[in-house]
Amino acid sequence: MSKDSDQAETGGFRESGLTDLVNKEHRSIGTDAVIASRSREIALKAVIGLLLTLAMAFIALPVIALFFRSPLDTILETMHDPVVIDALKLSLMTSTITTFTVVIMGTPIAYVSARFNYWGKELADSLIDLPVIMPPAVAGIALLVAFGRMGLVGHYLNSFGISIAFTTMAVIIAQVFVSSPFYIRQARTSFEDVDLSLENAARTLGATRFYTFIHVILPIAMNGLISGAIMAFARSLGEFGATIMFAGNFQGRTQTMPLAIYTAMQGDLDVSLCLSIILVAFSFVVIVLVKTLTRRVCKKC
């Protein structure tokens, strides 16, 4: 009996020993797997971190370099240069007019595009987006052959004594052409995001389409519209290719900041650097101002 029990015990020990061994092996395999997955995770994080750092450096470095290379006294001196004052005034004036034009014209277009289906909608949407992929120089030539003195439409306008090419109006037209898709695309998405049942609810409560648009749809889509307007403003402030082709480079009339930077670069790199800094600073101030102001207005409504 005791032998049997001994044997059983021995067998039991053996069995338990075997189980321990298997468990140990399992444990060691499990630990290995955990270590392997952890090291994979760390490697992945390291790669993502490296990529992020590289991307940040790639964007930040040129901006930092711009500030490093520009001495403050030259910037202050440049600020008093009439060429710079003219260019800055013209840039801010044309970009503001462009942004208002794009918002006034683009908002109904974006709303119709978001809400209604009509014949040729695909074509219209593609046409609206076309300036985004069109090289600015091509846009400039296209505008010239359309609105220039001998252009398709310009030819007729010329007979009424209206000349657009190489005027401030041409600067604005070029800017509207290249920056409108930035606003319209963003506005279209914002309008699409407004729940249709809100619009329907307002209608059944007695609101006309226009009242509904002003009091329900517009406030809800406002943040998206503001982002779109800022994008359009920034794009028109930086517009170069289409402007120089269609409007030329005349100080006080068509020479915007990017054109002034280009012109200055032909002679003195320092001046063009200072101009760039001024442009960056102004764009930044305008964007912060617009965002702060609209946040206040939105809170009030």
């Binding site: 329907n200 609810a201 059944t204 409560l205 007695g206 409504c301």
Partner: peptide, 28 residues
């Protein structure tokens, strides 16, 4: 048009105007 029919419609999602207060929704 729907705005002239004088029909009260409660939508499945309630369709309350999210940017307005409770008061403004009812006063709309």
């Amino acid at each position: 048009p729907p705005e002239s029919r004088g029909i009260g419609y409660v939508f499945q999602s309630y369709a309350l105007f999210p940017h307005m207060s409770v008061y403004d929704n009812v006063a709309f």
